[in-house]
Write a protein that binds this DNA or RNA. Structure first.
Lengths: 233, 233
DNA sequence: CGAATAATTGAAATCAGTCAATTTGAGTGG
DNA sequence: CCACTCAAATTGACTGATTTCAATTATTCG
């Protein structure tokens, strides 16, 4: 469909290079497509648009001076991403799957001239973002790595779970390192926690990025630290 | 000035009881006063107002089922707090010092009828909140407890530092447990980190809640994990 | 002054991080 | 179609930091 040049695809490492968004990028109301690794915007870019995710998944990150990366959020279909502060984006954003986003011109400083409905939607998006960040804190703040990972899987389950007979399937769009940086863990620890959940028969892995939730109740208990409430532990 | 009844003051434990805001609470534009421990609102309360902090410090928290508490933010003078999501507050909020707030009626669902300037201010407040939560993530996500604490002190320094001759003074309005719940640590670990900073002569304590920053440069280095860059370590 | 709370300190146990090795899986080219 | 290469994921052993639990000291407020 859309040509994927090796340069655009890149590896994790090469795609970290700072690339300006293509000049032709911004046309309001015209769907924009990204290939995995391509950036939608960078931190402190002037924000001409906000974006409604139509398909695919994006990764919103901030990087510290020491090179450590914090995944602030993932952008799933339906999310509005790229809300600026003082006219500039506050995170970096790149695609982790093929992505379609709908750009919306967004001149926050000129709200009087703005379509009232769009204005209301922007406010709603901002308030939702606040609550999602707060929810993220509750997950991030859990004691045990296994609780964090379980809580993260519950989040994905509610967001992108696909029914498969009685059970639900999660297709993980992100790799272990992304999960780790979202939860404040290392990829090794994430992997061990997933292994542990599999050993407890709470989940089963088809391949590394495709899991079946075998015991949703138990998963939700583990996510809340109520390991006693389920027989799996 | 304002009478502090024992019931209102309470201890940490008693003040956790759910108390509705006083019925007389809400008068737009009329300053509302709180004593330490008093609640301004609770999670999932219908949000009639947002509040501009005029003086004092508030604590915004969310509590998990297992009783653990996450301090989402502190509300300092100048902050707008209480932005709702879907008409309801998303956190609990109580005063940790005597507080004065200015309530602003806030019917987000009726934005058309709203004063355009107020509307713009609300949007600005929401976007600022998003950035502050993201900043909080970067602090929360640091590896070492000492880095978290140093970063937290830098945050306070920039926010409520008071010049004292060449140096700066921080009057901590919150106790160790609040700091711990803000950073995802235990009070003991917070205490140890502070002790460590004192041993390195980066800070000095007048009493437990009054500290002088003796080496601001070093504090900022430690906050970013650049322990090597300063001679203190 | 005495009681209660907060803060600090100490010692032991646990959990996650680090580093290294192995396995798995996807993509490439023969 | 298979072998090869590379990256991602998993596993293992070890280290080290933080938590936990307990005891002590400091502070605040009747």
């Amino acid at each position: 469909m859309y040509a994927i040049s090796p340069a655009d695809l890149g590896t994790e490492k090469t795609s970290v290079q700072r690339r300006r968004p293509a000049r032709s990028a911004g046309a309001e109301g015209v769907t924009r497509r990204l290939t995995p690794g391509q950036h939608l915007f960078f931190e402190s870019d002037r924000a001409a648009f906000v974006y409604k995710v139509q398909s695919g998944v994006l990764r919103l990150t901030r990087t510290q001076k020491d090179g450590r990366r914090q995944v602030i959020a993932f952008g799933f279909p339906g999310d509005v991403i790229g809300l600026p502060c003082e006219g500039r984006h506050t995170t970096e954003c790149d695609a982790i799957t093929p992505v379609e986003v709908l750009p919306r011109r967004c001149d926050i400083s000129e709200p009087s001239g703005m379509d009232p409905q769009l204005r209301a939607r922007l406010m709603e998006a901002a308030l939702n973002e606040i609550r999602m960040l707060q929810d993220h804190f509750l997950i991030f703040g859990r004691r045990l790595a296994s609780e964090k990972v379980a809580a993260f899987l519950v989040l994905l389950l509610d967001r992108i779970g696909e029914p498969v007979g009685e059970l639900q399937l999660i297709r993980l769009p992100m790799n272990r390192a992304d999960i780790a940086d979202y939860l404040g863990l290392t990829p090794e620890t994430v992997s061990r926690s997933i292994t542990q959940l599999r050993a407890q028969n709470v989940i089963a892995l088809d391949d590394a990025n495709t899991m079946v939730v075998r015991d949703e109740y138990c998963l939700r208990c583990l996510a809340e630290g109520d390991a006693e409430l389920c027989a799996c532990a």
